[in-house]
């Protein structure tokens, strides 16, 4: 699992950079995309309640790994979007799914010894997409790089672009 900080910052940096071009991407929706980017990390619930404990208690198979998949993102985004006002549901759902998929893609670049990522496209397929094995999550250089990019994007957004776009958008 790539760390949550990297997921949140990748979503922030991408959406903020896109917002320079696309007027409709406002910071409030960037915030929702960042929230969506956390969805695959909810798999960490297993640290609190182990899957095998659930299996033994309820007597049926159970695996949190599905949270870090396309199916998990699509469903968890659904329940979260209902927490918004009715008129925001569709937009919130779209943003949450975009954020979740961003994190799945970022996770899909992690190193695996057999050069294939997890089956994160489940339930569409059990195929494990090939990974370029770019990084391992405990590598602090990954975090440093993402923090630097996010800081750069923030700086550009604050200084240069505001000059050309005086109207402040909420």
């Amino acid at each position: 699992m790539a760390d949550l900080l990297a997921h949140v910052l990748v979503a922030y940096a991408l959406m903020t950079a896109l917002s320079w071009r696309i007027e409709r991407i406002k910071p409030r929706w960037t915030a929702v995309v960042m929230g969506g980017a956390v969805i695959p990390d909810l798999v960490k619930i297993q640290l609190l309640l182990k899957a095998h404990v659930v299996e033994e208690t309820v007597g049926i198979p159970f695996d949190y790994a599905a949270v870090s998949t396309l199916g998990g993102v699509l469903l968890i985004a659904g329940v979260i979007s209902i927490a918004f006002q009715r008129r925001y549901w569709r937009r919130a759902y779209g943003c949450l799914v975009v954020g979740g998929i961003m994190s799945l893609v970022v996770n899909g670049l992690r190193a695996f010894a057999d050069s294939h990522s997890t089956a994160w496209l489940y339930p569409l397929t059990w195929w494990r997409p090939p990974t370029p094995s770019l990084y391992v999550t405990s590598d602090y250089r990954v975090t440093a790089l993402v923090v630097a990019v996010a800081a750069l994007v923030t700086a550009i957004g604050m200084s240069v672009l505001d000059r050309f776009r005086p109207r402040r958008e909420g």
Binding site: A51, I60, D63, Y64, A65, A66, I76, I82
Partner: peptide
């Protein structure tokens, strides 16, 4: 909310049962 939560639980069970 109940529908989504049931679907999420079903997904975790399906994954656990078929992976």
């Amino acid at each position: 909310v109940l529908v989504f939560i049931s679907a999420i639980l079903a997904l975790l069970v399906h994954y656990g049962g078929t992976n």
